[in-house]
Design a binder for these strands. Structure first.
Lengths: 204, 204
DNA sequence: GCTCGTAGGGGTACGCCGTACACCTACGAG
DNA sequence: CTCGTAGGTGTACGGCGTACCCCTACGAGC
């Protein structure tokens, strides 16, 4: 009845995400987000309970534009799971600075839940249920979020590769050799390659 | 020549880890670590450049007691990889509060590198090399670290399961059903089950 | 159209954090 | 015994999350 709200949660999330995209995850704070919105830091507390909730809003926004409609049912189920994995990966990659955030809060965002539901539908259609379906979904979660994380703060692949290739070759002969090989493998190949390995072992 | 050092990096790491184990990861700071050692906060800077290096020491210590000697060579290669994965998982699980730390700095700790080297030896013995070996190692990294993370701040499995089971069943029918099923699956089964799926698809 | 209760938003302040800097001092080499 | 060096302390600064208090712009009820 008195004085209407001037902000939507989504506008708030957009401002915070703008800070992260522009200045990095470390720059995200109640103060910087407030400044981005042209208001005082304490004003934000009319919209979120604490910083953690602000982060959740950001992740909601990132995962909110993952397409979670079922992929065309005429493709084999493995390809449909691949499509879902790629959609998630692409959405997260759109905000590289926010990767740790997105994965940390993934299971609390509506988009993450919808993703799981759609993947489960595909797995169920492939004949999985009961404990096997539990394990399969969890393995997919583990692989996808682990792979995305590796990709964006990478030990192997990415800029960390050179550091590993430069290690003493006598103590880590295979690791240095593998790091050199890694240069010839594109990120998409790595992600999809590993995913296909997992999917190959997952069905039947 | 003047005045000898009173601390070893390992004692420093032990103190920091004690803080984390006792009071949680959020309690870790230069100040609390210094207090644990009975010295002033600034004194730590004679031993580490900054907080990041302190964290790295902690992770070094956690991953340092992963057994990275090659598992007995008479077992099938998949079982040997399993053994390596379990060793890493067990070492990390010994300090549950430090899980995010351990995984974030894994690739910068000597123990993590030795782990990779040993796993690569097994994979090489199984006939993998070149790009296939790159993808296999990376997939294992992704799965293992993703699974450990899920296990310790779990969406599916763990205390988060009930929250998911309590979601509106009409919007998330499969997810809630799967969360209920998840109660009957032990963490070890989940971890090993997913790992075996990945390993099944990984060779040949 | 005026009043009034309420919720939006600002300001100040506290106790944390990491760490730059200046200082004192215990020690071992000569 | 002296002296240079490096270990360790204390102080201080800017930034953080946020508790608390206040002012005020607004919409509902008359």
């Amino acid at each position: 009845m008195p004085r209407p709200r001037s902000l939507t949660p989504d506008r708030l999330a957009a401002a915070a995400l703008a800070v992260v995209d522009r200045d990095g995850l470390a720059a995200l704070s109640m103060r910087t987000t407030a400044k981005e919105l042209g208001m005082s830091p304490m004003g934000l507390y009319r919209y979120v309970a604490d910083r953690d909730e602000l982060e959740r809003l950001v992740v909601d926004r990132i995962l909110g534009d993952v397409d979670t409609t079922p992929p065309p049912g005429d493709a084999p189920w493995r390809e449909r799971v691949e499509a879902m994995a790629c959609r998630l990966r692409d959405a997260v990659a759109r905000h590289p600075e926010a990767v740790p955030l997105a994965l940390a809060h993934r299971h609390r965002a509506a988009g993450g839940l919808r993703w799981s539901e759609t993947v489960l539908a595909i797995l169920t259609g492939a004949g999985l249920d009961g404990p096997r379906r539990v394990v399969a979904l969890r393995a997919l979660h583990a692989y996808v979020s682990g792979a995305i994380q590796l990709e964006h703060r990478g030990p192997l692949s990415g800029p960390g590769t050179e550091a590993i290739a430069a290690l003493p070759g006598d103590r880590f002969p295979l690791l240095t050799a593998t790091a050199r090989d890694a240069g010839g493998v594109a990120p998409d190949e790595e992600f999809l390659g590993g995913l296909r390995m997992l999917l190959r072992g997952l069905g039947d």
